[in-house]
Simulated assay, not measured.
Amino acid sequence: MNMGLTGGIATGKSTVSRLLTECGAALVDADRIAREVVEPGQASLRLIAERFGQAVLLENGALNRKKLGEIVFADPAEREALERITHPAIRAVMKERMARLEREDPSRLVVVDVPLLYESELSSLFQKVMVVYVPREVQLERLMERDGLSREAAERRLHAQMDIEEKRKRADFVIDNRGSLEETTRLVESFWRENGRL
């Protein structure tokens, strides 16, 4: 089975994906792929520089993520322009890795961590979808603390994603991550016992 793993920013997707791999799942990480497709020499980085200007590049030619983030989180049209550049490249790599892992071991659960799974309308790629959930206020507090953001900046980032309650409603599986790591671990292990292998 392949399963999309999503949630919202600062809900704890990385923790849950790590726990799933510790149980034995294979992981395809869309965030990691997103970083790979904008490395120096990649077509996506060239297109980003053409669209947003040389100011989004560091002196060594790498992407200045902070500068690009300031632009795209302040303007939905700019964020959409970035997504039109990066999403096709990310999807192509993601599908290739999913197919390879499935060929290698058809009975192994393949987890694909995709932060914007619903926003990018990717549900159809997966047999099931798991959402890592925390209430919005907890999400906001964690984001401010984790990234050192003001409340206003954190709100803007949350606003750029689908509301976490809507994601929770659409999910096949929900991991409530507002408690301790031990509680989350128990929830993931329970899921694994029931769904880990075909």
Results as ranks from 00 to 15, higher is better:
61 G>T: 02
30 A>M: 04
34 A>E: 04
38 V>W: 02
158 L>V: 06
74 A>G: 14
138 V>Q: 09
148 G>S: 01
169 K>H: 07
37 V>C: 06
48 I>Q: 02
168 R>L: 02
104 E>K: 10
4 G>I: 04
68 L>H: 11
150 S>N: 15
12 G>D: 04
1 M>N: 02
170 R>E: 02
160 A>I: 03
154 A>H: 13
189 E>L: 06
146 R>A: 08
132 V>I: 04
27 L>G: 10
18 R>D: 12
5 L>V: 03
162 M>H: 11
8 G>M: 01
139 Q>E: 09
6 T>N: 04
187 L>A: 15
23 C>T: 07
73 F>L: 02
62 A>R: 14
153 A>P: 09
146 R>P: 05
191 F>N: 01
101 L>T: 05
42 Q>D: 08
180 S>R: 13
78 E>T: 10
178 R>I: 12
109 L>V: 09
50 E>L: 13
15 T>A: 14
94 M>C: 15
20 L>I: 00
195 N>A: 08
176 D>S: 00
60 N>R: 07
105 D>P: 00
130 M>F: 01
6 T>V: 06
4 G>F: 01
174 V>Q: 09
102 E>C: 09
187 L>M: 12
110 V>Y: 08
78 E>F: 08
143 L>R: 10
132 V>S: 05
147 D>K: 04
164 I>Q: 00
98 M>W: 08
188 V>R: 12
167 K>M: 10
120 S>G: 11
21 T>Y: 06
47 L>V: 02
2 N>G: 01
147 D>S: 05
53 G>Y: 00
71 I>V: 15
86 T>S: 06
181 L>M: 12
4 G>Q: 05
175 I>P: 14
165 E>F: 08
92 A>W: 00
79 R>K: 15
1 M>P: 03
175 I>F: 13
140 L>I: 05
97 R>P: 05
155 E>G: 03
166 E>I: 09
64 N>Q: 09
14 S>C: 11
84 R>E: 14
35 R>H: 03
123 S>I: 03
31 D>Q: 14
45 L>E: 07
119 E>V: 15
96 E>G: 11
187 L>H: 08
192 W>K: 03
52 F>N: 09
126 F>H: 07
17 S>L: 01
92 A>S: 04
183 E>S: 11
71 I>E: 12
12 G>A: 06
198 L>C: 11
164 I>F: 01
118 Y>M: 00
103 R>H: 07
111 V>L: 06
71 I>A: 13
80 E>Y: 13
195 N>V: 02
